[in-house]
Simulated assay, not measured.
Amino acid sequence: MPALPFTQVDVFSEEPLSGNPVAVVHDADDLTSGQMQRFANWTNLSETTFLLRPGSSDADYRVRIFTTEEELPFAGHPTLGSARAWLTAGGTPQTPGTVVQECGAGLVEVRVEEPHLAFAAPPLFREGPLEAELLERLVAGLGISPADVVSGAHLHNGPRWVVLQVTDAATVLGVVPVPGPLVGLDVGVVGRHPAGHEAQVEVRAFLSDGRAVAEDPVTGSLNAGIGQWLTDLPPRYVAAQGTAMGRSGRVHVERDGSRVWVGGATTVVVSGVVRP
């Protein structure tokens, strides 16, 4: 297998090494799905992406997004990291200032507003309140009280998020997950910061591969779903994420009419070649 260009991008933090990394393999058209999955498993990052020639004339490139276990139709920080890698490699958008990414969820617009990039949140495949039994399971798995819960929802936009809004950011940061009840679920938790904090909300994400549960540092798809769900938040707000992990993720969310834009800083940290 010939060497392919490779980029690793830190996403959603103004400080390099403080956000969420994504691995990006360029010129990956000749790789099989099996090779992509094997390489993504080897990187052991939450997602690895592969850039290919677009199938749609409206797209600038096509991307395939893999976790260590499966392919996703869409994910947030891999979208921004892939767009940054493509631009850094010399990609020129057909429409100045807007990159159009083709992925399993369709065409996704990415606004270029240096030093930030922002993607247009795709429509939710599923939304709606949580079932009582699932709500009880989440309360047990997050180690919180039912009185801490303000509301809950299914927010599926590629990943199948189940999300709880809790009373405040302190409750979010105080979560100590109990893996058993959360296995098999992708769980988000959001709560408001007090007035005067640089971020309006605190967010945490817990991902399960069916065997164990791990926390994700900063999560674009979850924040996209939250921005579409909690319409009582300001039209523009900042979500902090990764605090409990020693990261300083900052996700900028903007509601523009019926569209929600999710953005933040992106920094190329590693570049070179790989032989998947």
Rank of each mutant, 00 (worst) to 15 (best):
I144C: 05
S145E: 12
A147P: 01
D148F: 03
V149E: 15
V149K: 09
V149W: 04
S151G: 08
S151F: 09
G152S: 01
H154C: 08
L155S: 05
H156T: 10
N157P: 01
N157L: 15
G158S: 08
P159I: 11
P159R: 12
R160W: 13
R160S: 06
R160F: 01
R160A: 11
W161D: 12
V162I: 12
V162P: 06
L164M: 10
L164C: 11
Q165K: 10
V166P: 08
V166M: 02
D168S: 11
A169C: 14
A170K: 14
T171D: 03
V172H: 06
V172N: 10
L173Q: 15
G174C: 06
G174P: 07
V175N: 07
V175A: 14
V175F: 05
V176D: 15
P177R: 06
G180N: 14
P181T: 03
P181H: 07
L182M: 09
V183I: 14
G184E: 05
L185S: 07
D186V: 05
V189K: 15
V189P: 05
V189D: 04
G191Q: 13
G191C: 01
P194L: 00
A195I: 03
H197M: 14
E198Y: 09
E198W: 03
A199C: 13
Q200P: 00
V201S: 13
F206N: 04
F206A: 09
L207E: 08
G210F: 12
A212H: 11
A212M: 10
A212G: 03
V213H: 03
E215R: 10
E215W: 08
P217L: 05
P217I: 01
V218W: 10
G220L: 04
S221G: 02
S221V: 00
S221W: 00
L222H: 05
N223K: 02
N223G: 03
I226R: 07
I226E: 02
G227L: 00
Q228T: 01
Q228N: 02
W229F: 05
W229L: 04
T231M: 05
D232G: 09
D232N: 09
P234N: 08
Y237W: 15
Y237E: 12
A240V: 02
A240E: 15
A240D: 12
Q241T: 11
Q241F: 00
Q241K: 13
T243P: 01
T243D: 08
A244F: 01
G246A: 06
G246Y: 07
R247M: 04
S248M: 14
G249S: 08
R250N: 07
V251L: 04
H252P: 00
V253I: 14
R255E: 04
D256E: 12
D256Q: 14
D256H: 09
G257C: 04
S258K: 08
S258M: 08
R259I: 00
R259A: 11
V260A: 11
V262N: 02
G263K: 07
G263S: 10
G264H: 03
A265H: 15
T267F: 00
